[in-house]
Design a binder for these strands. Structure first.
Length: 463
RNA sequence: UCCGACGUAGCUCAAUGGUAGAGCGGGUGGCUGUUAACCACUAGGUUGCAGGUUCGAGCCCUGCCGUCGGAGCCA
């Protein structure tokens, strides 16, 4: 069985020889002259292969004339130059086997455009559409590019745990993992549920970040990265949030904020370059059908150095702009999404914002000399907003414990994390990239639910 | 979770409180090296769910469910 992508790249003629392909019917057009055109797509590329099936096939009337969109077929034939316009080559069928029919009365996909909302309801059939096939191919290429980027730089791929008992403060609500029967939980003498008798001997959750474990491993082998699923139980319903998403989290020992920001920039650049170099047909499709600015933004990310500014400068530039804001920019406040958007517009591309107020960032970020900011950085991408968040970590034991106490956390609960500072501490830094947001950036797809195969959001875990 | 919109045929949408319609898709026939094919005919409905107002509700009111857009939280 050959893939249509490879077949379409071949030259027609005798040396092309016999070809066998398998795929799903996109459309069938009959000629009264006694043959039919059947377009087959197998998802290996955007393009479909035009098959010409004639009356000489023994099952022409019985099978070919009944083919409809969605039917699966295996075709043997000879690749020839196409006399018609619209395609260079076509497959003259010598045999066509119908493997599975798709009743056109009930098959949900149509030749007409279908809304993204509707496609989400039939997520198991979305992969058969042009748009979603292209999303899946780009997503796969990006995953490959992530691993090769880090491998080339000496980073070790780290499989951080998905189940955790450490409640990483401030990272968001967590999903509980338990084997306790909710109808008959074990109880302590005072009546409260006895979580110490749960499966892990303590309350356990799905991870919200592999960062803490990555720090531990980086402080042993130097450079690591995680690439895995991450879970947030927030009831957030937006175009850029999922309850289950994939995150890439590198962590470097002997690195400061500047090294972190440089890594982030070259990482985004490498991913953009890889997609530009390897997904030309898909990008052209997205440019024409989804977002006409997507290629320009990718090319900018691939070639133009990212602007760099401190949080303090960012607030000043926002104040100096003549934009009207729903929330006025003010030092000490979070950058609102409207602020992020304006910053990328001012800079005409991606921008790295550094040195945020300590009060709006988590306990593990390194306090700067000024005492009021931390060595944090966000990468803002045009059309997306925050695509990377990272920091230099607080490697000084005293300062880290102080940060914890200021936030009402008990250092005693973070013994192993503090050990990393207690024994042979080193400056280290890392960041997290929202993988789906990167897929959005590379495709122009506006809703994050349409760049992951089976999205999980509040009230929706079907499929 | 908050604010706003929406929910009618398989899909996308119409319909002053007064007989539920169109386009696409499906079926049948015609035409054609076709390619968003085209032409004719045809089938297809518990108007999201539950109440209420009214002689009469797709339309008005209440509650619930769901979807979308914006916001917050973040990646």
């Amino acid at each position: 069985m050959e893939r249509i992508k490879d077949v379409l790249a071949r030259e027609p003629g005798v040396e092309a020889g016999a070809v066998r392909v398998g795929g799903w019917v996109r459309t069938r057009r009959d000629s009264k002259a006694g043959f039919s055109f059947v377009e087959i797509n197998d998802g290996s590329c955007l393009a479909s292969l035009q098959v010409v099936a004639g009356r000489d096939l023994p099952n022409y009337e019985r099978d070919v004339l009944c083919l409809s969109m969605g039917s699966s077929v295996a075709v043997d034939g000879v690749l020839v130059a196409s006399p018609g316009a619209g395609q260079k080559v076509e497959l003259r069928a010598t045999a066509m086997e119908v493997i599975g029919r798709a009743d056109p009365e009930t098959y949900p996909l149509q030749k007409k455009e279908i809304s993204y909302e509707r496609l989400r309801e039939i997520a198991h059939l979305r992969p058969r559409t042009n748009t979603f096939g292209a999303v899946l191919r780009i997503r796969g290429e990006l995953a490959y590019a992530v691993h090769s980027f880090f491998r080339e730089r000496g980073f070790i791929c780290l499989h951080s745990p998905i189940i955790t008992t450490s409640d990483c403060e401030g990272a968001g609500a967590m999903f509980r993992v338990t084997t306790i029967d909710p109808g008959a939980p074990p109880r302590r003498p005072d009546g409260a549920v006895d979580t110490a008798r749960d499966f892990f001997g303590a309350s356990a959750y799905l991870t919200v970040s592999g960062q803490l474990e990555a720090e531990a491993c980086a402080c042993g082998v130097g450079r690591v990265y995680t690439f895995g699923p991450t879970f947030r139980a927030e009831n957030s319903n937006t175009w850029r949030h999922l309850a289950e998403f994939w995150m890439v989290e590198p962590e470097m020992a002997f690195a400061d904020l500047d090294a972190d920001a440089q890594l982030a920039e070259s990482f985004i650049r490498a991913l953009a370059c890889h997609v530009l170099a390897n997904c030309g047909a898909e990008l052209e499709f997205f440019r024409k059908r989804v977002d006409d600015g997507v290629v320009k933004r990718l090319e900018s990310a691939a070639t133009k150095p990212f602007d760099r500014m401190t949080y303090t400068e960012a607030v000043e530039r926002l104040k100096a702009s003549d934009r009207k804001f729903e929330y006025a920019p003010e030092w000490g406040g979070d950058l609102q999404s409207e602020h992020e958007r304006v910053l990328t517009e001012i800079c005409g591309g991606a921008v790295v914002v550094t040195d945020f107020p300590a009060s709006i960032k988590p306990f593990y970020m390194r306090r700067s000399e000024d005492g009021r900011t931390v060595a944090a950085m966000d990468v803002l991408a045009p059309g997306i907003g925050e695509i990377i968040g990272g920091s230099q970590r607080e490697e000084r034991l005293d300062a880290l414990e102080q940060n914890m106490r200021e936030r009402g956390m008990d250092p005693a609960n973070y013994g192993w994390f503090l050990d990393l500072r207690r024994y042979g501490t080193v400056p280290h830094a890392g960041f997290g990239l929202g993988f789906e947001r990167m897929v959005q950036f590379c495709t122009g797809m506006r809703n994050i639910r349409d760049v992951i195969p089976f999205p999980r959001t509040p009230g929706n875990a079907e499929f």
